[in-house]
Amino acid sequence: MRSHTRWWGALMVLPATLFILVFGILPVFYSLWLSFYDIGLASRTYIGFQNYVKLIQEPDLWDSIRVTSKFVVVFIFGEVVVSYIIALGLDRLNKTFAGIMLVAYRVPGLVAGIATIAVWRWIFQTHKGGLNLLLGRLHIPPVSWFGNVTTAPWACAFIIFTTLLTGHVLLYMAALHQVNPEIIEASRLDGANELQIIWHIITPLTQPMRLYILLGSFISALQVWETPFFFTGGGPLGASTTVMYKIYQEGFLGGEMGIGLAMSVVMALFTVSLSIFFMKKLKVHLV
């Protein structure tokens, strides 16, 4: 390659890199820097580690971590376990049939968010809500699903769960297609039954895809914000305040900006180390 053409490469990479540096990477360092300041409307005073000290002492923080971990459990159960079982089932069926099912399975993931607020609000409504009408037929008294400390986080988690369980069926099916059918045939000849084949052969062979989905699932669970925003406002008594919703409260709803930024720093460190851990496990070679 001629020497002057190499600068073209740098020129082509530059615009994208600039954007990613400013809006993708700088936020981490910016929040790290600002987290050592007390941020007022017009002034910034250096206060050292005080934001972090306050953060650790805040009981709300541990509550929000507890709420978020509930979401982590639900996300992993839906995306890693249930999706896989559905994919195993669908893989045994006629291709055209599976294709039609996959189209239907895509719908909840696509329209999740704004378009489903109305319907879920009605389902979990206390007075004449769908779920309570159903329970009423069984003579169970109505429950205030979003207004109750025990049920509010699980109701939120359930709403997301419905979009999770079919979300990764397609990815799992792609992984299943790569399993060599001769291995399965050989173990069948050796007398292994269906469940043994699934557990001892297919599951280990699809492990890379599972780890990949697990990482994505974990990270998306940490970022839950919209569901408490739309349905509960983080309440009651913070029972559905996720870590992200707490950051939003600190930054925008009259909390302390410094604490919100300190939380952002911890969040970034946690997810980056999580990614590195998984990438080592996956032995990803991106370079």
């Binding site: 809006f23 700088l26 981490v28 929040s31 600002l34 970022q223 950051i247 952002s264 970034a268």
Partner: peptide, 14 residues
């Protein structure tokens, strides 16, 4: 590796 939504507060300030 840096999740977009999680960084919304510093990103907003920038």
């Amino acid at each position: 590796m840096i999740p977009g939504v999680a960084m919304f507060l510093p990103k907003f300030l920038i």
